[in-house]
C-alpha cells in the first residue's frame, strides 16, 4: 500500500510524505493496516493541532518511524542469518554425503582420532602431577622405613643397576656416614614386586620394604610380611633360599614370591657393591692427594 494513497498524510511543513510501511501494524495503538480508510482520517485529526505541536509531533513521529524501520530491518537481517545458520549444517551434511567414500572414511576417522588425542592429552596433563606425587611419596616412605633417621636421601644418577634394580639412593647420616637403598622390581607370581632394600656401607642389608605387590592374596602376600622381610636383615651378597648362614627360608607354598623377593635383595646388594667399588675407588684416589 503506497503512502501516497493515504491522502492527507502529507506533512505540509516539510513536504515529505510520511512513510507508512508495516509500522502502523506494529504499534499497538494504531488500527490494522487493512483499514486504510480509518488511518488517514485519524492522522490528520491527530496532526491537526497547532503548528508547533504538529512540527514536534512530526519530528517525533519521524524519529519513531525511522527507529521502527531500523528495527524491522534488523529483525529481517536476523531472520535471514538464522535461515543461513540452519542451512549450514544441512549444506555441510550434503557436502559430506556427496564426498567420495574414501574421503569420507579418512575425514571421519581423522576427526575422531584428533578429538580423542586432544582429550587424552588433556587428561594426561591433568593427572601427571598426582601420579608422580604418589610415586614420590611411596618411595620416600620406603626409604624412611629401611634407613630411618637419616639427614637426607639422594638419587644417584648413572649408577650401574644389575638385574631388577631400578634406582640407587644414597642416605646421609648426621655423623657423615653414607648408606644406600636400592629400588628393585623383580618379577613375582602376579607381576612386579616393587621393593626398597636398605644396604649399609659395609654391604649388609638393613631392611626391606615393599612399595607395591600384587601377589596371590593370603599366600604370595605373606612374602611381604614383616616376619619374612625381617629374615633378610644382616644378610650379605650372595643371599639365596637355603640352609646356609647367608640364606633365608622361603615361605611354604609361596615359592615364587619368596624367590622373587630374594632375587630383588640379591640384585640390590650387587648394585651397591658395584657402586661402592667404583666410588670408593675414585674417593681413595682423591684422598690420596
Amino acid at each position: 500500500m503506497s503512502d501516497f494513497e493515504r491522502e492527507g498524510r502529507f506533512d505540509e511543513a516539510s513536504g515529505i510524505p510520511e512513510e507508512v510501511s508495516e509500522i502502523p501494524a506494529e504499534t499497538p495503538a494504531d488500527a490494522p493496516v487493512d483499514a486504510p480508510a480509518d488511518a488517514p482520517e485519524s492522522a490528520p485529526e491527530d496532526a491537526g493541532g497547532t503548528e508547533e505541536q504538529s512540527a514536534e509531533e512530526t519530528a517525533a513521529a519521524e524519529a519513531a518511524e525511522a527507529a521502527a524501520k531500523a528495527t524491522a530491518e534488523r529483525l529481517a537481517k536476523k531472520a535471514a542469518a538464522r535461515e543461513k545458520r540452519r542451512e549450514l549444517p544441512r549444506v555441510l551434511a550434503g557436502m559430506f554425503r556427496n564426498m567420495p567414500p574414501s574421503a569420507k572414511m579418512a575425514l571421519s576417522l581423522f576427526v575422531i582420532t584428533s578429538v580423542s588425542a586432544a582429550l587424552l592429552a588433556a587428561t594426561h596433563i591433568l593427572t601427571e602431577r598426582p601420579i608422580s606425587e604418589h610415586r614420590q611419596a611411596a618411595v620416600e616412605r620406603a626409604l624412611a622405613e629401611v634407613l630411618p633417621g637419616r639427614a637426607g636421601y639422594a638419587l644417584i644418577d648413572g649408577a650401574e643397576l644389575p638385574g631388577s634394580a631400578r634406582e640407587l639412593y644414597a642416605a646421609y647420616s648426621y655423623d657423615g656416614g653414607e648408606d644406600y637403598a636400592v629400588n628393585v622390581a623383580p618379577n613375582g607370581y602376579g607381576g612386579e614386586i616393587e621393593m626398597m632394600v636398605g644396604v649399609d656401607a659395609g654391604g649388609s642389608v638393613t631392611g626391606v620394604s615393599i612399595v607395591s605387590m600384587t601377589e596371590t592374596a593370603g599366600l604370595g602376600t605373606k612374602a611381604g610380611s614383616p616376619e619374612f622381610l625381617g629374615r633378610f636383615t644382616g644378610k650379605r651378597a650372595g643371599v639365596s633360599i637355603g640352609r646356609g648362614d647367608n640364606d633365608i627360608d622361603a615361605i611354604a607354598g609361596a615359592t615364587i614370591s619368596s624367590r622373587a623377593v630374594t632375587t630383588g635383595v640379591s640384585d640390590a646388594l650387587a648394585a651397591v657393591a658395584a657402586y661402592t667399588a667404583s666410588s670408593y675407588y675414585y674417593a681413595e684416589e682423591g684422598d690420596g692427594q
Binding site: 580423542s116 587424552l120 587428561t123 593427572t127 601420579i131
Partner: peptide
C-alpha cells in the same frame, strides 16, 4: 578409537 580413548582416560584417572 572412541572406546580406547575413554579406557585410557579411566586408566589415567585411576592411577592418579
Amino acid at each position: 578409537v572412541v572406546i580406547a580413548t575413554f579406557v585410557t582416560i579411566v586408566d589415567m584417572l585411576l592411577q592418579a
